[in-house]
């Protein structure tokens, strides 16, 4: 019996009067890659951020590791084994790669930190070369590496990825997806939000389709990939 790491129970979130999420329920189990696909403005990022407590859901409950986290402050939620690679990367551009990673591993013990550092250098050898370079002077792909590495520095249980392929060259996207594959092999649980439905579904164990703030479909990644409606709407026929 696999354990549920993340669970949304009838969650609704609104920005003022605009309803962004409506009655969303979903589950992510240990060791799985689950992807959430949907068009621009469907509420994908809102869904991720509701999990992080920013904004707080209006209704419904969010559970992490069996414990309810709805209503907790963001910093408290994120300190317990959840890490995020947010939309637009949001690395600290005036800080060096080292300092960025340092912030990601703020609460990591010394031994774990050194171990995590070795691990991210193996994943992204480029970061070792650029260790003292400022984040803002790097290319988009390198910045995405910094963002992923920063998230990994806390040795998370659950990794949230918000559109990691956005704005990157196809070859870099390929690299990023390979890294996600490697993380899965390590046993990490991954919740991947993507607009690049084709690649995300190929990789994922299961997928959810979000439309106008509602989950309209839920199936295994392979089934969604061949589903007529999904093909029409997200994979270009």
């Amino acid at each position: 019996m696999t354990q549920t790491v993340l669970k949304f129970e009838n969650v609704s979130t609104a920005y003022g009067k605009v309803q962004a999420l409506e009655d969303v329920s979903l589950e992510v189990n240990e060791g799985e890659i689950v992807t959430l696909i949907g068009a621009n403005g469907a509420g994908k990022t809102t869904l991720l951020m509701s999990l992080c407590g920013d904004p707080q859901p209006q209704k419904g409950k969010v559970f992490y590791d069996g414990e309810e986290i709805t209503g907790k402050p963001t910093s408290e939620i994120m300190r317990n084994g959840i890490a995020i690679v947010p939309e637009g990367r949001r690395i600290f551009s005036r800080m060096t790669v080292e300092e960025n990673l340092n912030m990601g591993g703020f609460f990591t013990s010394k031994e774990d930190y050194d171990e995590a550092l070795k691990y991210v250098f193996r994943l992204f050898p480029r970061l070792e070369e650029r260790f003292d370079q400022r984040g803002g002077t790097m290319s988009g792909g390198e910045q995405q590496m910094v963002a992923i590495a920063r998230a990994l520095m806390s040795k998370p249980n659950l990794l949230l990825l918000d559109e990691p392929s956005l704005g990157l060259a196809p070859i870099v996207i390929q690299q990023i997806f390979e890294v996600i594959e490697q993380l899965r092999a390590q046993g990490m649980t991954i919740f991947l939000v993507e607009q690049n439905a084709n690649q995300a579904l190929k990789l994922a164990d299961r997928g959810y389709v979000l439309e106008n703030g509602k989950i309209v479909m839920h199936d295994s990644g392979d089934n969604l990939l061949v589903n007529e409606d999904v093909r029409k709407a997200y994979l270009g026929g």
């Binding site: 992080c52 920013d54 963001t74 910093s75 408290e76 994120m78 300190r79 890490a83 995020i84 947010p86 949001r90 600290f92 551009s93 005036r94 800080m95 912030m103 990601g104 703020f106 609460f107 920063r150 806390s154």
Partner: peptide
């Protein structure tokens, strides 16, 4: 640089 992101790092 980014208050929200720092918060998201716990």
């Amino acid at each position: 640089e980014d208050l929200g992101m720092t918060n998201l790092l716990g």
